[in-house]
Amino acid sequence: GAPPLPPYSAGGREVTMKKGDILTLLNSTNKDWWKVEVNDRQGFVPAAYVKKLDSGTGKELVLALYDYQEK
């Protein structure tokens, strides 16, 4: 199953993602919540729920390892 959710501390809205989604990583300075862009929406997802990909394009991409439903 998915890892436990860290307390929400990102101070911005969250976004929903599905397992297998490829998201653009915008900011990973917060260790628990990373800012991503998905379907032209920006928001935060739990860092433990995604994995960085080596895209080779200069853009940082992450793979959704679990479904996440915004609150």
Rank of each mutant, 00 (worst) to 15 (best):
N30A: 08
L23G: 10
W33A: 01
N39I: 13
V50A: 03
P3R: 05
K52S: 07
P6L: 01
D40A: 07
G1Y: 06
K35L: 15
A2G: 10
Y49M: 06
K18G: 04
K31E: 11
P6C: 03
T29M: 11
L65R: 03
T29D: 15
R13L: 13
K31C: 07
K35G: 05
K52L: 14
L5I: 13
G11I: 15
A47V: 04
K35T: 11
G56T: 14
V62H: 02
L65M: 08
Y8W: 12
K31H: 11
K59H: 10
D67F: 03
N27E: 15
G11A: 14
A48P: 04
F44S: 03
E14W: 06
K52I: 13
F44D: 02
K19C: 06
V38Q: 14
G1K: 12
A47I: 02
V38S: 13
L65K: 03
I22P: 01
E37P: 01
Q69M: 07
T57N: 15
Q42P: 07
K51F: 06
E37R: 08
L63Q: 10
G58E: 11
L26C: 05
G56A: 12
A47M: 04
E60Q: 15
P4S: 09
A48G: 09
S28C: 08
Y66H: 07
S9N: 13
D32T: 05
Y66D: 03
S55N: 13
W33P: 00
K71V: 13
L23Q: 01
Y68K: 02
S28M: 09
E37D: 07
G12R: 08
G58L: 11
V45G: 00
P4A: 10
Y68M: 03
L23R: 01
E70Q: 13
T57E: 14
D40L: 07
N30S: 10
L61V: 09
K59E: 12
T16C: 09
K18P: 01
W34C: 02
A64S: 05
A10S: 15
I22Y: 05
N30T: 04
K35M: 15
W34E: 01
Q42N: 08
D21P: 00
N30F: 05
K18L: 07
L5S: 07
P3I: 06
A48W: 06
N39H: 10
P7A: 11
V50Q: 00
Y68P: 00
S28D: 15
V38R: 14
S28R: 07
V62C: 10
S55D: 13
L53H: 04
S55W: 15
R41S: 12
V62W: 05
G56I: 14
P6S: 01
T24Y: 12
V50F: 04
Q69K: 14
D40I: 05
G56K: 13
L25D: 00
W34K: 00
N39F: 08
P7T: 05
G58K: 09
S55V: 12
T29F: 08
M17E: 00
E14N: 12
K71R: 15
V45Q: 00
A48S: 13
A48Y: 06
V50L: 14
V62D: 00
V38H: 15
E70C: 08
P4Q: 09
S55T: 15
D32A: 06
W34S: 02
K51H: 09
V36H: 00
N30H: 11
F44L: 05
V36N: 00
